[in-house]
Design a protein around this nucleic acid. Structure first.
Lengths: 224, 224
DNA sequence: ACTACGGTTGAATCCTGAA
DNA sequence: GTTCAGGATTCAACCGTAG
C-alpha cells in the first residue's frame, strides 16, 4: 500500500470508504465559495469545482469530524469573505475553533484598487477534536510565507507553509487527509516529512498535474 | 462648541441625541463579547462594560448605520472569536463589509501556551455605506503597528494605527464618532489630525483617565 | 554583508456595454 | 429598467542579480 495516495474523484463520495477516526491530521484548502476565476492571466484558469456555493460545507465538516481521530488537529484554509460560514459550520460539526491563523503573503492581490485595502493574507482555521499539544516551540498565529503558484494553479499553497502546519501537529508515519489537494502541495509536504497521505481531487487536469508533480518528487527521493 | 467632545454615559442612550447622517467617519473598539478579564497583571483591570454578551450588537450596528453619512467609512475592531457575529450583524444593518483588516502587533499575547498559536493580531472590520475612495496610496490589509497599553487600559489601541485609518477615510474638519472611546486614543488621533470628535465612555474611571489624557494633549497643542 | 535596481506578481473589483 | 459577461486596472512588496 502506497504511503502517498492520490485519488481522482469526489471526496464527498470517496470519504465513505474511509473508516471513522482513522485520520491523524487534516490539512486542506477547500473551495472558498467565491466563484473565483483569476482575471490576471491571459489564459484564464478553469473554474474551481464546487466553488459557486457552500451548500456542501455542513456535511463536509461533519465528515471531517468523523474521520479525524480524537485529540487531533485540522487546518482548513478559507478567506474572510465566507469566514462566518466556515466558522459556524466547523463548530456545528463538533470542532473547537482553537484559533484563526493568518497566512501573510509576500505580495498583495488586486481588487478594488482605489476604494479598498489590498488583500495580502488568507485565513486558516485551526480546529481541534479533543486536546492535542503542538510540537516544537510556540509560534505566532501570523505566519509569513511567500506565495507560490502558476497559471495552472493560481491558488497553489506553498509547500513550506503546509510543512510547518504538518510538523506542528503530527509525527512521522501519521496519516494526513486532504480532500481537495489541487496542485498537490500537501502530498509533497507529507512526502518530505515522512507522513502518510491520502488525498482527493475531482478535476481531472489538476489531478494529472499534481500526480506528475508528486511522482517527480517521489522518484527523486528514491534516487538518493 | 468643542471640537473634541468626550461624553460620559451609555452610547445606546446618547446616540439618540445625534442626528441621522451627521457623522463622517466611525472608528471604534467595542466590547468584543469575550468577558475578558486579564489574569496577567497583579491588579486585575475592571471588567469591560457590556462585554458579557453581544445582544446589543444588532441594534448598535443599525444605529451606527443611521448616524453615518452616505458614502462614508466605518472601522470596527473585533477579535476572531466573534467575527461571525460582527460580520453578520454589520451586514444586517446595511453596511457593506468591504474588507477585514489585520492589525499585526509586534509582540504576541499569552493564552494556551502549549496547545495553541500565540495571538499576534486583531481584526478590524472595514465597513462602507455607499462608495467612498480611500485617500493616499494603496495600503495592504495587513497593518503592522506596535502595541501600546498600560495597566489601566489593556485593550488600548495605538494612536498611530487610529491615525492611519482616519487619514485614509476622512478630511480635516470631518466629524468622527467613537461610541466606546476607552483610553481615548481616537480622540487624541482626531486632535492631532484636526478632525472633530464625539465619543462616549460609560465607565467612570476610564472616562476620567481618558479625559486627563486628552486634556493634556489639548493644552500642549494650545501652547504652541 | 550591504545597497541598488530592474523585473514580476497578485483566491479582485469596478465599469462598460450588450442582451 | 436589470442582469450578466468581459476587459482594464493599481503599485507596493518581494526576489534575484549585480556591483
Amino acid at each position: 500500500m502506497d504511503n502517498i495516495q492520490l485519488i481522482k474523484g469526489s471526496c464527498f463520495e470517496l470519504n465513505k470508504e474511509i473508516a471513522d477516526e482513522s485520520i491523524d491530521l487534516i490539512v486542506t484548502d477547500p473551495p472558498y465559495g467565491m466563484s473565483f476565476v483569476s482575471n490576471i492571466r491571459k489564459i484564464k484558469h478553469r473554474p474551481i469545482a464546487n466553488d459557486d456555493n457552500l451548500l456542501w460545507l455542513p456535511e463536509w465538516f461533519k465528515d471531517q469530524f468523523r474521520l479525524l481521530k480524537d485529540n487531533s488537529h485540522a487546518y482548513v484554509f478559507c478567506s474572510w469573505h465566507n469566514i462566518d460560514v466556515f466558522k459556524i459550520q466547523a463548530s456545528n460539526a463538533g470542532f473547537q475553533l482553537k484559533n484563526i491563523l493568518i497566512w501573510f503573503k509576500n505580495n498583495a492581490g488586486q481588487g478594488d484598487l482605489f476604494g479598498d485595502y489590498a488583500p495580502q493574507y488568507e485565513l486558516i482555521l485551526f480546529l481541534t477534536k479533543g486536546r492535542k499539544l503542538l510540537n516544537g516551540k510556540r509560534l505566532s498565529n501570523v505566519i509569513r510565507c511567500p506565495k507560490t503558484g502558476n497559471e495552472n494553479h493560481p491558488t497553489e499553497k506553498p509547500v513550506p507553509l503546509i510543512q510547518l502546519l504538518i510538523e506542528k501537529s503530527s509525527l512521522q508515519g501519521d496519516l494526513v487527509l486532504d480532500n481537495f489537494f489541487g496542485s498537490g502541495s500537501c502530498a509533497i509536504a507529507c512526502s518530505n516529512l515522512n507522513r502518510r497521505f491520502i488525498g482527493h481531487e475531482i478535476d481531472e487536469e489538476r489531478f494529472n498535474d499534481a500526480n506528475k508533480r508528486v511522482q517527480m518528487i517521489l522518484s527523486q527521493t528514491k534516487l538518493f
